[in-house]
Nucleic acid binder design. Structure first.
Length: 567
RNA sequence: GCGCUUGUAGCUCAGUGGAUAGAGCGCAGCCCUGCGAAGGCUGAGGUCGUGGGUUCAAAUCCCGCCAAGCGCGCCA
């Protein structure tokens, strides 16, 4: 028999209990209390109803048919075989055959000290085992500032990267800069026309152009900087000077917006470098070698149909023989997997690119890389709501709202929280008024307020010169104290699940639950007491408050948010 | 037409094939001589879009249908 617990390697309660279940099952079988079975996966979940304990497994129900026994009988054999541990104080059988586990109060209390000693790292895992993972996100064309729709991808990509880091992966954050191809040429031409207009020349934008204000300003600025030096130069010459300048200014604009969100990239990867270097040629050679390329109608095609796709796609266009966007994307993924050796790549894309997923997976496959190593996360577009009115934006018409406007209006923290709170697949509605509200209607505020309140208590203790380092956690016996400790110790489970499923939305939900448990505790348990008889209890509760502060701040930080000490 | 995504409380959203489907907001009511009331407690509110199927067990998996969003280029 082979028993699989899960893929997790490091210590957290859920996984510990899964191991307890597996050992119990194995020893019950060894003792011939239960029949032998084939492969078994032991899943331990957190029951919805807290009356059912802290953790629960339906293993007995799953085994019932293969063991030809009543589920409750199997459950009781497993439960009897559970060996004692400091983690669990009670194992019981309930319902049709669930085995429920209750965490030991003493263990929960000891964790207060563990959290205070190790900081939020107490919840960090080694499931990633240092595996090289790349998270590529935002990657908006550098032809203008980010708009509000891009902020969701930024929050999600950054959140996933932070979570994977906490789970022990070696994470690289990357922005793919589309600085080659058609779009870039049109951008350069638009900037050039605006540049000439700033000079007073009567010139009109070509049919294909970026008519926006941003490009107009860019042309004006560049004229201010370079106008005199470029006098009398050919159009081509001028463009070759101001084109790259316009690009770097635009990238600087994007970088600064992301910087406001606290997002820093390890690499801004140039599309052009794939062509000027040898990645494009090498990836093409590899595909040719493996038989996935053919020439037809003057163009070079990727034979997607050979991989089960509906159609083939152009790699090199017939007319000017330039690589298509898809062509360079092949080279880009070749570079990621083959050249740079990422074991796993996660791309966060907007919903308008979902048609590209199957193609990209097929490309990776045909390059000889397991397509499962490429995960593409699609975030649906966002509707913004102001009161009852839906705010529409449209890039073509240039009436889009800049990401910076959103950050000005509601702040980076609210953006992180609200975008992370919903799963990427929801066609979500962002309520602008709510995000701004400084009341408990707004979960962002509720959570940050809870943290500020903890800090206020600790400040107050400091002012009263209460030293609590030597406090005794065994005095923490109140139901609200225990409920809070239970919650704090979920963080490793939450990180494990978020990392495994690549689902950042568990983080804000957890942060909210911590804040709520905290407010209940605060309401029920006076922390700093003026009664000398309570001096020891005060110290113990301050230890708990400090541990809660560490967990809440750590959670917010993983979400890319600040944990304010005052508000 | 084809493909992808979504459909759960009045609204915004969670929900790992499992136990009585949850939370927030909103609504009704209640609670503070002290650490931050920017808070806490209680209650009402559901044909899980719809029709079949698989299963000991389905909001969850499979198929059909309906509705919404997005995409189907030698654009990126």
């Amino acid at each position: 028999m082979r028993v699989r617990v899960s893929d997790w390697d490091s210590m957290h309660p859920q996984k510990e209990i899964a191991q307890i279940v597996v050992s119990a099952l194995q020893s019950a079988i060894a003792a011939e209390d239960l029949p032998r079975v084939g492969d078994v996966t032991a899943t331990v979940e957190r029951p919805k109803n807290s009356d059912h304990g802290d953790y629960s497994t339906s293993l007995a129900l799953t085994l019932a048919s293969s063991m030809r026994m009543a589920p409750r009988d199997i459950a009781s054999k497993i439960a009897d075989a559970v060996s004692p541990s400091s983690l669990v104080c009670d194992v019981s059988i309930a319902g049709p055959g669930f085995i429920n586990f209750k965490l030991d109060d003493g263990w929960l209390r000891s964790q207060v000290n563990v959290i205070r000693e190790s900081g939020v790292e107490f919840a960090h895992l080694d499931v990633g085992a240092g595996q090289k993972v790349q998270v590529e996100f935002v990657s908006v064309n550098p032809t203008g500032p980010l708009h509000i729709g891009h902020v969701r991808g930024a929050a999600i990509g950054n959140g996933i990267a932070n979570i994977l880091e906490a789970a022990g992966y070696d994470v690289q954050r990357e922005y793919y800069v589309n600085d080659a191809g058609n779009q870039m040429r049109i951008f350069s031409e638009s900037v050039y026309v605006r540049f000439m207009q700033a000079q007073g020349k009567d010139m009109e934008l070509p049919a294909e152009s970026y008519p926006g204000e941003f490009v107009a300003e860019l042309g004006k600025d560049l004229y201010g900087e370079f106008g005199n030096d470029l006098d009398g130069m050919s159009a081509h010459g001028v463009m070759s000077v101001i084109g790259p300048q316009a690009l770097s200014k635009t990238l600087e604009n994007i970088r600064s917006t992301l910087g406001r969100m606290g997002i820093e990239y390890d690499e801004w990867f140039s599309e052009q470098s794939l062509i000027s270097g040898d990645d494009f040629d090498n990836s093409l050679d590899l595909l040719k070698e493996r038989g996935y390329v053919s020439e037809r109608e003057g163009a070079l095609w990727f034979l997607g149909t050979k991989m089960g796709l509906e159609s083939d796609s152009v790699i090199i266009r017939s007319e000017e023989r330039g690589p298509s966007y898809f062509g360079t994307d092949i080279a880009y993924h070749y570079n990621k997997f083959v050249k740079r050796g990422f074991e796993r790549v996660i791309n966060v894309w907007g919903a308008d690119h979902h048609g590209h997923i199957a193609r990209m997976k097929a490309v990776v496959d045909s390059l000889g890389v397991d397509p499962d190593n490429l995960t593409i996360i699609i975030n649906q577009i966002v509707n913004f709501k102001k009161g009852d009115e839906t705010v529409r934006f449209n890039k073509r018409k240039d009436n889009f709202i800049a990401a910076d406007d959103l950050l000005d209006a509601v702040g980076p923290d609210a953006c992180h929280y609200i975008f992370l709170e919903r799963t990427p697949g929801t066609h979500m509605e962002f309520d602008l008024e709510l995000a701004k509200k400084e009341t408990s209607e707004n979960p962002v505020f509720y959570v940050q307020y809870a943290h500020a309140r903890l800090c206020a208590i600790l400040r107050s203790a400091a002012e009263r010169k209460i030293a609590f380092e030597d406090g005794d956690v065994s005095l923490l016996t109140n139901a609200h104290e225990l409920a809070l400790m239970r919650r704090l110790n979920e963080l490793p489970d939450v990180i494990a699940r978020s990392a495994e499923m690549l689902e950042p939305h568990h983080m804000p939900h957890f942060a909210y639950e911590v804040a709520r448990e905290l407010q209940r505790f605060y309401e029920a348990c006076r922390v700093i007491s003026s009664d000398p008889a309570d001096a020891e209890l005060t110290k113990a509760r301050l230890l708990l408050v400090d541990a809660a502060r560490i967990v809440l701040a750590g959670t917010l930080n993983i979400m890319g948010m600040n944990a304010p000490e005052r508000m």
